[in-house]
């Protein structure tokens, strides 16, 4: 199932058959060159690839929305669906997620997530800051803490190894301590989530319209408890 179609002195491209369709592995190097060579290779095998579902492993390339969006459109011009982009660059992973693509071939177990995002960091040691509204369909998985400045809308999800802090309204799904840390907390200026999870506990908040107040959610005796935040 594996064919190596790289040519000497050109960037190497590998195409493999996998359970989910085709996986194309690109070599690191100047993105423009890699990109042009990829399209050239695809055009040479247009008949074979037409209608294919493709996952792309871009290595450590740092890609912005414009790069990935352009490539996806160029592939769809050739009747190829790009459904996943695999990378060890957090920027590229975020770009792929915001464009609605998968960043893993299969649903990851927590330890794989940790490895794929940044190997070697301890759960809860690092944090990622998202300064934007997280809209429906957005998903972020991070082994450390997640801090959001903005609202988390219904249909968005945050899965963090550590704590989750939201300077805004929480209306989507938040999972803190996803790798089993029972000390993890979730706090937000208004806690109205579709679902909350801490470690292995799941809770559904009753749909009551109350006055927006900052709250901290933590595990107490094995159940998820929300407390008003009171600085005094």
């Amino acid at each position: 199932m594996e064919s190596d179609i790289g040519i000497a002195e050109k960037p190497k491209i590998q195409i493999k058959g996998i359970r989910e369709g085709l996986l194309i592995i690109l070599e690191d190097g100047d993105w423009q060159k890699v990109h042009d060579f990829l399209l050239e290779q695809i055009d040479q095998q247009a008949e074979f690839l037409c209608g294919a579902r493709v996952a792309l492993d871009v290595g450590s390339q740092v890609l912005k929305a414009a790069d990935l969006g352009q490539l996806r459109n160029q592939l769809s011009d050739r009747k190829i669906t790009l459904w996943a982009v695999i990378s060890d660059s957090p920027t590229t992973q975020q770009t792929a997620q915001t464009l609605g693509m998968e960043i893993q071939l299969t649903k990851a177990k927590p330890e794989q997530t940790e490895q794929s995002i940044s190997p070697g960091i301890q759960s809860g040691e690092q944090a990622i800051l998202l300064h934007r509204t997280l809209r429906s369909g957005f998903s972020i998985q991070f082994p450390g803490h997640v801090v959001v400045i903005g609202d988390v809308n219904p249909g968005a999800e945050i899965i963090a190894g550590g704590n989750i802090v939201i300077w805004g309204r929480l209306r989507g799904m938040a999972h803190a301590g996803a790798e089993g840390n029972k000390e993890a907390i979730i706090c937000a200026l208004d806690v109205m989530p579709t679902q909350l999870r801490i470690a292995d506990q799941i809770s559904i908040t009753p749909q009551q319209r109350k006055k927006a107040q900052p709250e901290i959610v933590r595990l107490r005796d094995g159940s998820v408890i929300a407390e008003l935040w009171n600085p005094k």
Partner: peptide, 15 residues
């Protein structure tokens, strides 16, 4: 409204 939120996110992602 939920679907509109998703679409707005995609429009932002496509710049």
């Amino acid at each position: 409204v939920r679907d509109a939120d998703r679409i707005i996110g995609l429009i932002e992602a496509e710049e």
